[in-house]
């Protein structure tokens, strides 16, 4: 399947196409090839979101994965986060879910909640 990418290595933003035979066109430098290879083989992203709390002063508190997780798992991570409710005061950096979906990443608070 033909795939198109916008390279984000530099501000030029090349539109790069990977063709069915594996050839790559549209990149103006070789860094574009490296970028596309990573994106094709193992794209990963940090997921940031919020989780519910029981506190009316702060009904939501922000969280993130403490390392990038495979891109295809992003919606599954979101599903796990929707099950979480913070019931006790916690600090920035505290772990909410350990090793989420076996990715090796923890869900941590990105701000303190009622502390």
């Amino acid at each position: 399947m033909k795939k198109e990418f916008i390279c984000i290595v530099c501000p030029r933003g090349c539109h790069i196409t990977v063709h069915e035979d594996g050839s790559i066109t549209g990149n103006m430098c070789k860094r574009g090839i490296e970028y596309v290879k990573t994106e094709m083989t193992a794209p990963k992203r940090i997921v940031t979101s919020t989780v519910r709390t029981v506190f009316s002063e702060m009904p939501r508190v922000s969280v993130k994965t403490d390392r990038p997780v495979p891109k295809e798992l992003i919606m599954d991570v979101m599903k796990e986060l929707s099950k979480v409710i913070i019931t006790t005061p916690m600090s920035l950096g505290d772990v909410v879910i350990e090793n989420i979906l076996d990715t090796g990443a923890n869900i941590v608070l990105t701000r303190s909640c009622m502390k």
Binding site: I46, T48, S62, K64, L92, T110, R111
Partner: peptide
């Protein structure tokens, strides 16, 4: 280092 907005504020 890369932070989220709330972490940066903190």
């Amino acid at each position: 280092e890369e932070y989220t907005g709330p972490e940066y504020a903190e």
